[in-house]
Computed example of a mutant assay.
Amino acid sequence: MKVKRQEFEKQLYEVKVQARAQAQAVAQAQIQEEVKKILDVEKASQGENLMAAIEKERMTTEDERLMAQLYWIELKAHKLVEKENQVKKQDALFREQVAKLEEKSAQFFKVTTENFKKGREDAHNTFKRVDIKPVCGDLQSQILKCYRENTGQTLTCSGIANLYMKCVDNHKTKSIGG
């Protein structure tokens, strides 16, 4: 929006500068033409005085045309200013609506975050974690180490495997019996 505004201001400025330059150029040309006419009038006879009067009338008509043209340019500039003001109002309204949406979004995020935290706490309270320790964990790690060190020679680890199986069986017996 700021870029468009700057473009509008730039266009308005350029139109005003162009109108002034045109008016000055036309005025200067008219002045030069008027001076020439006055000199011709002084040299000329009664007939030439009549021609000068006609030329002066034509210049007056041209001045009036240029003034009318300047009026229309100023009118267009005024309309541009009005349009710019309208754009400013729309921009302010848009910013206000965005601010409201951001506020609603922040409220929604807050409520959602609170609900998520509450749900997580409820889930943690409902499903308490139970720490389970592996049965015969030391023997299990020894077997895995033996298998890694003796790849393809599983019989080498059979002694540790038998101890592990007995440990697991003892644990089953204790669990069922106890």
Rank of each mutant, 00 (worst) to 15 (best):
Q153W: 07
K133H: 04
K79S: 08
N125M: 04
D138C: 03
G152Q: 00
D131N: 07
M165N: 14
A77T: 01
E34V: 14
E62I: 03
G177W: 10
L155G: 09
T126M: 03
R58F: 05
Y164S: 04
E55K: 02
A92I: 14
R65K: 12
Q142D: 12
M165G: 10
L93K: 06
A92L: 10
Q107V: 14
W72S: 10
K166Y: 12
Q153Y: 11
R95L: 09
Q69F: 12
E48S: 06
H78E: 12
E74P: 00
G178M: 08
E14N: 03
S141F: 11
A25P: 00
L12T: 08
M67D: 06
A21H: 02
T113D: 10
T173D: 06
E57S: 05
K174I: 15
T156H: 10
E74G: 09
D91K: 01
T156V: 15
Q28D: 08
S158M: 08
I73W: 05
G178N: 02
R95F: 10
M51C: 07
V98T: 12
Q6R: 14
G177K: 11
E42C: 11
V111E: 14
D138Q: 08
I160M: 01
E55T: 12
E82G: 08
K166S: 11
A44L: 11
M165Y: 14
Q18R: 07
Y147Q: 06
A44G: 14
D91R: 01
V41T: 15
K2W: 10
I160F: 02
Q153I: 13
T60R: 03
K37G: 13
R129F: 11
L93N: 06
E42K: 11
M165A: 15
K118Y: 07
K145S: 14
E33M: 11
E7Q: 11
H124F: 12
K166R: 13
K100C: 04
E82W: 06
Q6I: 15
V26T: 07
A68N: 10
E14P: 00
A68D: 08
V87G: 02
A53T: 15
L12Y: 05
S141P: 03
L66N: 13
A52T: 13
E14D: 04
A52K: 01
I143R: 00
L101A: 10
L75N: 08
Q30P: 01
L80A: 11
A23I: 08
I132K: 04
E14C: 03
Q142N: 09
I143C: 01
W72N: 09
Q6G: 09
Q30C: 05
R58M: 06
K43L: 15
L139P: 01
M59R: 07
K174H: 11
Q69P: 01
K166W: 09
V81F: 06
E9G: 04
I143H: 00
E102T: 14
V17K: 03
A77H: 00
A92P: 01
L144V: 15
L101P: 02
E62T: 11
F109N: 12
I143E: 01
K37M: 14
E103I: 14
M51S: 06
G178R: 07
G47Q: 11
Q18G: 08
